[in-house]
């Protein structure tokens, strides 16, 4: 009985450890991230509100990102959107076409490993109901040729997004490694109805049927070397 008390305390501490990490992560989010990222759902969003954004909303991050990717990226952040976010605040007129004003693109905060893990834990806990359609992506075999044709030609995703071999446009997020960064259900839900997840976002709603949504999602996952299911 005397030995069971420390054991009990030990178990209690073990159970407490993830909660502490999460609390620590939440503190870091508040102190280092909240100036640019929305951590809670805004009461309402207008087009004008998009112009006040400095970075993507994170209030549904737990339904959006893959944790492993978050931990790695937070320690060594790279640019996800070639023109930054939102793109329209960072483009200027150029001689042949609009160009990215590099002077406006600031490097993202770097975190130490322990902090990155704590922040990733806190972000992964942010899973509000009704944002992402759970189980929308069914998995299965992927026809990469058809996926590439859809991305490049049939749907023209390439106009705004970089896909295979880093080829594509600049105003959207780079999708060459989207499968590493994003959860399959998020990819499929966002393709299906980006406005439902992020009202007024500059990604058009393409009214794609479920077959095309499955194919495109599977293509993006496989393109990143992240085969699932």
């Amino acid at each position: 009985m005397r030995t069971s008390l420390p054991m009990f305390m030990g178990l209690g501490l073990l159970a407490l450890a993830p909660m502490q990490a999460q609390a620590g992560g939440a503190d870091i989010l508040k102190s280092q991230c909240s100036a640019c990222h929305a951590l809670s759902k805004p009461a309402s969003v207008t087009i004008d509100d998009l112009w006040t954004r400095k970075a993507p909303d994170l209030w549904y991050a737990g339904d959006k990102f893959n944790k492993d990717w978050l931990v790695a990226w937070l320690q060594n952040p790279t640019r996800i959107r070639p023109a930054g976010y939102p793109y329209f605040k960072n483009v200027i007129k150029g001689p042949k076409h609009d160009e990215i004003d590099e002077s406006k693109l600031k490097p993202h905060v770097h975190l130490a490993k322990a902090d990155a893990e704590a922040v990733a834990d806190a972000l992964m806990a942010m899973k509000p109901d009704g944002v992402v359609q759970k189980g929308i992506y069914k998995g299965g075999s992927v026809n990469m040729r058809m996926g590439a044709m859809t991305f490049d030609k049939f749907r023209g995703c390439i106009a705004c997004h970089k896909g295979a071999d880093g080829k594509g446009g600049f105003s959207g997020a780079e999708l060459t490694d989207a499968g590493k960064r994003l959860q399959p259900d998020y990819i499929a839900s966002f393709i299906k109805d980006p406005q439902k997840i992020d009202p007024h976002i500059w990604m058009p709603t393409l009214a794609m049927n479920d077959r095309s949504i499955q194919m495109l999602t599977g293509y993006l996952i496989k393109l990143s070397g992240q085969e699932k299911k």
Partner: peptide, 14 residues
């Protein structure tokens, strides 16, 4: 594009 003449930032990819 900002000039409204079809020369947006995505032009090289189109």
């Amino acid at each position: 594009g900002l000039k409204r003449n079809g020369t947006g930032v995505n032009l090289p990819a189109l």
